[in-house]
Amino acid sequence: MKISELLAFVTVVETGNITQAAERLNRVQSSISHRIRSLEDNLDVILLDRRTDGCSPTAQGQILYEYALKILNLADDCKNNISYSKNSQLTIRVGIIECLPPYIISSLIDLGQDLGWNIDISIGNTISLLSAFDKNEFDAVIIGAGFSNAQHARTLLLSSELVIITEKSHPRITDISSLDGEVFLLSSKKCATSTRNFNVLFDEGNITPKRVVECGSYPVLFSSIAAGKGVSLVLRCSISGEVKSKIKTHQLSGQFNDFKIELLSRTDCAYLDSAKFTDMVASVFQDPRLRDVGY
């Protein structure tokens, strides 16, 4: 069995389709099909249940899929270890949720440089980052709490406050039920953390939004709020001083004061001092600006 064959097989299982697997791997379909057949010939079993609407693993295919994931992860670890042995500076792949202020990223990169590390940052939403972490695409992720499982090594980094933001002229909100019928804006409907927080707000305030609009990014969300296009629920520390001057912030109470962000990191990387890395990240989240509006 070759790594390329295992990668092709895993990708077909995950996409459920040889065509999509070929697109993801930037290969022609015949190449993917050939690698799957080679595995089946080598193991003398049928690995995929091929249907007109796609593919799914057979019982034997499921066994191979689980082993293939481990083998591919080990291969990636091997490459990383060899790369580290060749280079004086270690690259640490870190995924971060998009709602955090930019100075967090700058601080991580700067402190990493001081320790001889190259911190390679990617921005995303909690679910996509967690999925990538489980596939060994990241060495660590900083995400909203409540989505990881007991198998992950977790460190609580921040417990902060969620606030309602509106245009400047909006009346002061004293009862969240007054938001019933409003247009709600969020950065991304794919962001499970934001979606969960909005659903809690809707349930607690018995709110039926006029509609929920996806803005695509936090800069667009903030500018839309300032223009009076709707209201939103955001992490207090995500509001910059410039944005603060253009919008109105409304404080909430109860569970909205306890939004948690956690670090998931690998404890099995031979090339990474996980304790040292965790201490470095935790120190960044001691920044007093995280407790205030504006930065």
Results as ranks from 00 to 15, higher is better:
Gln60Asn: 10
Glu182Ala: 15
Arg154Ser: 11
Ala68Met: 03
Ser85His: 09
Ile123Gly: 06
Asn257Leu: 10
Asp44Leu: 08
Phe9Ser: 06
Thr193Asn: 07
Glu98Asn: 10
Asp77Phe: 10
Asp41Ser: 10
Ser83Leu: 11
Asp268Ala: 06
Gly228Thr: 00
Ser194Arg: 04
Leu272Phe: 04
Gly144Glu: 00
Val293Phe: 04
Ile32Asp: 05
Glu204Ala: 09
Asp76Pro: 05
Asn26Tyr: 14
Ala22Met: 08
Leu48Thr: 06
Thr195Met: 12
Leu7Val: 13
Pro171His: 06
His170Arg: 10
Ala145Met: 00
Ser283Leu: 04
Leu263Thr: 01
Asp44Cys: 09
Asp273Glu: 06
Leu162Pro: 00
Ile46Met: 10
Cys237Ile: 02
Glu204Asn: 11
Leu235Asn: 00
Ser33Ala: 14
Leu235Ala: 00
Asp139Glu: 12
Ile261Tyr: 01
Arg211Trp: 01
Phe9Trp: 01
Thr126Ile: 02
Gly216Ser: 05
Ile119Leu: 13
Gln286Cys: 13
Ile104Cys: 05
Asn206Gly: 13
Asn197Phe: 03
Leu100Arg: 03
Ser159Gln: 02
Leu72Ala: 12
Asn118Ser: 12
Gln89Ile: 15
Leu130Trp: 02
Asn125His: 07
Leu201Asn: 03
Ala270Cys: 11
Ala150Phe: 15
Arg196Met: 11
Ile92Trp: 02
Ile3His: 12
Ser4Arg: 09
Asn42Ala: 12
Thr19Ser: 15
Met280Tyr: 03
Val28Asp: 08
Leu6Glu: 07
Cys215Asn: 07
Ala153His: 13
